[in-house]
């Protein structure tokens, strides 16, 4: 027996009743009432540490009990069981376990789930979509004045195209080389090269000038960008951004949509660093296939650094820098090119 208040849903008047369960029927008795309701038809309240318990009856009536502890004791004695979710919510141990599981699932999704899903989605996406997306990006770069018509002579452009096509062919015995199209632009980005989805590689005039006397290094740069194209990194990164943005939004979006972009951006940068490592791998492959030591890429980093001015000083950049960077640290990349050169030297 349990004392409770009954509301019929039509009037705000509370009626004092007592509850008991016999078999599969809940009996509500008192204040002129004698109701029998199947236990299965009642929307039972969830156990909580304090506060009111409210059960919903079919037909709009409800039962309220101000004494939560008494309700819980009565419900247990009558054989009503808590659902699993409620048991998890009411135990700190299980809730913390849920937190740990959440962390594991999130890390798993981030490390494997999202990359695998985006790889699958990109694999199912026809290459025409890449080209369309690349076209949109190219238009946007042009519209915003980030890239302007090139000042590089057509002959020099063709020389670079031919040299790259020849070098690229050596890495592909089967001869599939109509993969990328080099396009030259003057740009405020400085010495740089960008791979767009679909196979367009933008090379800035500054980059051509920076490496005017070092075709071998320029080949390495182009191979790196071709690696992005081959891996469809641009498309994967679009899909990953969507995934990880949704994930972060679900997790903390109800607090602040603005804060939710932070983990999304950090996660995206980590994926981007992995893409850069893969692209560096392609660069090393092409250089080796053409009998060039990967160590020549050291020249690129030296010249870029000289062009950029002194490296940023201050202790902060070292620990925080990597989490906030879309590329791995220069030192890491340099070491890799040098190691690749060393391996090659020993093999010879």
């Amino acid at each position: 027996m349990l004392d409770a208040e009954y509301f019929d849903g039509h009037s705000a008047r509370a009626r004092r009743v007592s509850l008991h369960i016999a078999g599969h029927t809940l009996h509500i008795v008192g204040d002129g009432l004698d109701l029998a309701v199947p236990v299965a038809d009642v929307d039972w309240p969830e156990r909580r540490s304090s506060g009111v318990r409210m059960a919903h009856l079919a037909g709009g009536g409800s039962l309220h009990c101000q004494d939560g502890a008494a309700w819980d004791a009565w419900a247990r004695a009558e054989g009503l069981r808590d659902p699993v979710v409620v048991r998890m919510q009411q135990s700190w141990r299980l809730a913390v376990a849920a937190g740990v599981a959440l962390l594991v699932v999130t890390v798993g999704l981030y490390r494997w789930g999202v990359p695998v899903a985006s790889r699958a989605i990109v694999a199912l996406t026809p290459p025409e979509v890449d080209a369309a997306v690349g076209g949109v990006v190219l238009d946007a770069l042009r519209d915003h004045g980030i890239i302007e018509p090139t000042a590089i002579e057509y002959e020099q452009q063709e020389e670079i195209r031919v040299a790259f096509a020849r070098a690229f062919a050596r890495t592909r015995p089967s001869g599939d080389q109509a993969l990328v199209a080099l396009r030259f632009y003057d740009s405020e980005l400085g010495a740089n090269a960008l791979a767009l989805p679909g196979g367009t590689i933008i090379v800035t005039d500054d980059m051509v000038r920076l490496l005017a006397d070092r075709e071998d290094v320029l080949l390495g740069v182009l191979a790196h960008e071709a690696g992005h194209v081959r891996g469809r990194h641009g498309m994967k990164s679009l899909v990953q951004t969507a995934f990880i943005g949704t994930l972060a939004g679900v997790a903390i979006g109800d607090y602040s949509v603005m804060l939710a972009t932070v983990p999304a951006a950090l996660g995206q940068m980590a994926y981007s660093r992995q893409f850069e490592r893969d692209a560096d791998g392609e660069s090393i492959r092409l250089l080796r296939a053409n009998g060039i030591s990967p160590a020549v890429m050291v020249t690129l980093f030296e010249r870029l650094q000289a062009a950029r001015g002194r490296p940023p000083a201050g202790g902060l950049r070292a620990p925080l820098g990597i989490a906030f960077a879309s590329h791995p640290a220069d030192e890491e990349r340099l070491r890799r090119f040098e190691q690749a050169a060393g391996v090659r030297a020993r093999a010879r």
């Binding site: 849920a98 937190g99 999130t106 679900v250």
Partner: peptide, 18 residues
């Protein structure tokens, strides 16, 4: 409502949602 109790509800909800 208590923060501790809502924390437990929230974290279980979050796990199941993800």
């Amino acid at each position: 409502g208590s923060g501790g109790e809502y924390f437990r509800i929230w974290i279980v909800n979050l796990l199941l949602t993800i």
